[in-house]
Amino acid sequence: MRAGDELPPLEIAITRTLIVAGALASRDFQDVHHDPELARAKGSPDIFMNILTTNGLVGRYLTDHFGPAAVLRKVAVRLGAPNHPGDTMVLRGRVEEVEGDTAVVRVTGDNGIGRHVTGTVTVTVPGLAPTPAPDPSDGRPGGVG
């Protein structure tokens, strides 16, 4: 693994169930996360995913990819376009830097109305060693798969 590597995207169907289950699993009973009528009264077209669920999904995206031995060190997320029911969010990740067995991964999550989340995750993956840069003299095409 090296800087520039991209993680395979993960599609998350934003169901009403996911939004409500995520809110309740995070003990977040704000009406905008489960009551469409009250969400509309506050100017939102429908309920929307809470930040804790987004945080959890970003964490899952990283550990799904790096495996159960991976240890999350830091997760920082910033929210933009809300996740409403019926939408799909696509999480993407790109390795920004690798130092020893620790990588910094830039994560984005786009939905049908824009960028829901941008985030930075620091993750330690035991046994992870930086892959040497491709040798330009070996004749094979370079770049990232």
Binding site: I12, L18, S26, G56, R60, T63, V71
Partner: peptide
Amino acid sequence: RHWCEAMGDRNPAYTGPDAIAPPTMLQA
């Protein structure tokens, strides 16, 4: 378990006798 079910997170690190909580649950 409720959290992992909601997130669709099947990471085995979060189950069993040596389970840890998903770190992103911190605020929960």
